[in-house]
Design a protein around this nucleic acid. Structure first.
Lengths: 267, 267
DNA sequence: CAGTGGTCTAGACCACTGG
DNA sequence: CAGTGGTCTAGACCACTGC
């Protein structure tokens, strides 16, 4: 077997086995081939070689490209599909996941109506209250891995379901990757905000962490949600991450839960 | 190939292929072999042939038993492991998951301290207030797939972390499978309640669904949690299921979230 | 009908555990 | 060292999609 045209990552021994390319440090922490392939695919996703919604090359093509068997590529893709980064469709191909997909729209929104389907209430009315640029206070900067004082965009909005104000949200985004985002563009756009982030700014949110509390609104919040000061609300703080565990959005939401609830499935 | 000693589920054709044993109805909804094997393993788990914490037979043994290749057994086990029903340990074997495992204890409890580790606060103080037998009201019966009026056990308890009452919970359990459960046994037992359910009643909770709201306490609840009536609380309603999607527990919890939060990871 | 993902097999070898 | 799960391969065939 020759090894002249191989990608930089791996070279084969004469037995056909692969050498592990990272004997760094004391514990190399053995990384199987399929995981290395997974990382290569991940790099192509990050770099934008394959964009949200597009097909990626077939398993056979990738097997040839990476010089491994189809089964190994398959296992790499399996993991990426399990993480919702890729979407397999039998007979058609493997696609880069996107928040614009009809089937997975509002994937991160766990609020559900007590009766009936969420789909019946979507798309919700979205009132953008505000979109301004400011210096990140320490508390915001820390969660976004920025230096305090770095420039961030702050968006405020109210979501209404069936005419009833239900969610009051504040968002903070690092200003650099989202340069050019304005209240107008947010108002014009049809579809989930994360879909807009993908198409307009090339930022794909991959996972998120939420911290949930029960709180009472302050007078301003109560006014925007048209509730009184004694109405308890869910406080949902979300940090959303793009590839490489890079935090790209902080969102603080207040959810009115008298006709909706936050749903969670435990496994 | 002979097909005389095969388990009832599948017989091989001469080509080595397997016949699909369920051409029932209009759309047989093709079920691959590994999924049939998965169901067989699931049956052995339900029947108690392999109990929580025990090793199951090796992949090779199961392959022989079911007359399929190791790879097919492997794929079945992969799915069961992904659903947290089985636990693989390289070099040791595959084990039936259990809530008594140190590593996965309190798997369904998403409350976390704002600062520090949950482990530092465990085990919490658990005060069993009450454990009584009663006729299920319609609202409870419906969620537990019982007839209203069926006998259920109701348990009330308060969990305290670092000396502070933090969770007030009511549980409802169908009386039949939990016959013999008393406040005393709950008080004596060290470890998670779901572990007690496994060892004492052979009921393993496999998954759960939670509905979360923000509420204010009534005077009785406020007294038990030692808070005032204006302190908002998380209301967490959980239905826990055993094998076969059979609901076996309804739990209504009130979580105090001034120094804790409910954590959720979105993928 | 060709192309894609999905299933299944058989066999080789690797990494990890415990006696 | 034997036994377990974990990786990798090569090849065959199946189910689904769209031309």
């Amino acid at each position: 077997m020759t090894s002249d045209q191989l990608p930089a990552e791996n070279t084969k021994t004469e037995s056909g086995r692969l050498e592990n390319p990272r004997p760094i440090g004391a514990t190399p922490a053995f990384s199987p081939l399929y995981r290395q392939i997974k990382d290569l695919i991940l790099q192509s996703l990050q770099s934008g070689e394959w964009r949200p919604g597009e097909v990626i090359p077939s398993e056979m093509d990738l097997a040839v490209r990476y010089r491994v068997s189809q089964g190994t590529v398959r296992k790499a893709i399996d993991e990426l599909a399990a993480e919702n980064l890729l979407l397999r469709r039998q007979g058609k191909g493997t696609f880069v996941a996107t928040h614009a997909e009809q089937r997975v729209q509002y994937r991160f929104l766990h609020l559900r109506p007590d009766h009936g389907e969420l789909a019946a209430e979507l798309p919700a009315t979205r009132d953008i209250i505000d979109c301004k640029r400011l210096r990140a206070p320490a508390s915001i900067a820390r969660l976004l891995d920025l230096r305090s004082g770095d420039s961030v965009l702050q968006v405020s909005r109210v979501l209404s379901f069936a005419g009833r104000p239900t969610i009051l949200e504040d968002l903070w985004l690092p200003a650099t990757p989202f340069k050019g985002l304005t209240a107008e563009r947010l108002r014009e756009y049809r579809g989930p905000m994360y879909a807009l982030f993908e198409t307009e700014f090339g930022v794909r949110m991959v996972r998120a962490e939420e911290k949930i509390r029960a709180v009472l609104p302050d007078p301003e919040q109560a006014g925007l949600l048209k509730i009184d000061l004694a109405t308890p609300l869910l406080s949902v703080e979300r940090v959303a991450y793009t590839y490489n565990d890079l935090p790209m959005e902080l969102r603080r939401g207040l959810y009115l839960t008298d006709s909706h609830h936050y749903r969670n499935d435990l496994n």
